[in-house]
Design a protein around this nucleic acid. Structure first.
Lengths: 217, 217
DNA sequence: ACCTGAACACCGTTCAAGT
DNA sequence: ACCTGAACACCGTTCAAGT
């Protein structure tokens, strides 16, 4: 398939363009120019603009797939994928949010989800709950890196000062903590640890001592 | 401030346009036409296109703010906000993803975060961990509704069939479960319950019986 | 089979001009 | 103070034409 090589070449260039100048800079015209060709020459290979963005999702998932391991404990395997997902987001901050907004239906995507399913099953999560827990974990992972990439987490400091303190009592109580600049690497690790704890206490190690309470209405 | 009324009017129309025809249909020209005015007439009120989108974020947060309650247990208060966030996403599926990609710095945004901080403090989460846990919970909530709105969760069924089963063993093992169409309302409730359990077991009710294990490298 | 060039129907935004 | 109309520099995409 010589056309697939050309498609890969185009997607590589598109991802590079997104990394260097942002997702908004990935236009058919700019991408074509980068490849020394006309915008219209891209269409036979990638479909339309939407197809190009779907291609970027596939391209990133392919980059994530090597993080799938067969050795190690199920917990280690989940963590490896979680960490690799954030490393991917660091390499491609502009393109990464596409993963949250576009369904991935390629073989690579299914393989990745299959690895997560397998690890959750090995951890003792009942079959009926596995897809839900996979969605919970992947949603958090994709959402976290997207928030980081878009600066959603860095907004607090700007605005805290210009606000009447008596209207935000909890902010006042946390003022010392909020002064400190967070270590995002450490925070992500702590989040993964909490989520692993959740899975473990909920299903793996509950020798009858844990009763899940009904939620209040 | 008569100009603030006009701004609110413009934002209401923009949100309506997004609800009816998608976020891509919210162009300066289309919005102006809906208001019976020229595109250029919008600029003094909302800044530029970016200011318009920031305004939509504020508009949605204002709609979410009434979910903040002072009565009830801290857990009930967290759940009320989590449920209201998803109800908001149902009303505004196209605009909702903006919450994940744009920092919110309005007074309403700070008030909302303050309510979450207060509930977590009341639950017994140590001050040093409160901002992190708030980010974990809000990231999940925003990411989940964004995934739902964009159809990320509905992709599996399409592709499962056309895949060689021996390459995805966990999918095969889960085939019965994966046949069933998920109840998204129930799934979201179960996710909230698991996250509440995580917070409770991690901090509120750990009378020394829970030792957080170090994560494997 | 693969690429080009001109054209079409859109964008956001600037700017001078109107009232 | 608020709005308009024309214009500019862009978009994605169609289509006939080239080789």
């Amino acid at each position: 398939m010589p056309d697939d090589d050309r498609k890969r070449q185009i997607l590589d260039a598109a991802l590079e363009l997104a990394d260097e100048r942002g997702l908004a800079a990935v236009t058919m015209r700019a991408l074509a120019q980068k490849l020394g060709v006309t915008a219209m020459a891209l269409y036979p290979h990638i479909g339309d603009k939407d197809g190009l963005l779907d291609g970027l999702v596939d391209r990133m998932l392919a980059e994530l797939l090597p993080a799938v391991a067969t050795h190690g404990t199920p917990e280690q395997r989940l963590l490896a994928i979680g960490r690799a997902a954030r490393a991917l987001a660091r390499r491609h901050p502009s393109a990464y949010p596409l993963l949250l907004s576009r369904p991935a239906v390629t073989p690579d995507a299914v393989r990745l989800v299959d690895a997560l399913y397998a690890a959750l099953l090995d951890l003792g999560v009942p079959a009926g709950e596995v897809p839900r827990v996979e969605r919970l974990l992947s949603t958090f992972t994709l959402g976290y890196a997207t928030s980081e990439a878009n600066g959603r987490f860095s907004a607090g400091a700007i605005n805290r000062a210009q606000f009447p303190e008596d209207q935000v009592p909890a902010h006042r109580e946390l003022s010392e903590v909020l002064e400190r600049a967070p270590d995002w690497d450490a925070e992500y690790e702590a989040d993964l640890a909490d989520l692993m704890l959740m899975v473990r206490t909920r299903w793996s190690e509950n020798d009858g001592w844990l009763k899940l309470q009904a939620l209040p209405e």
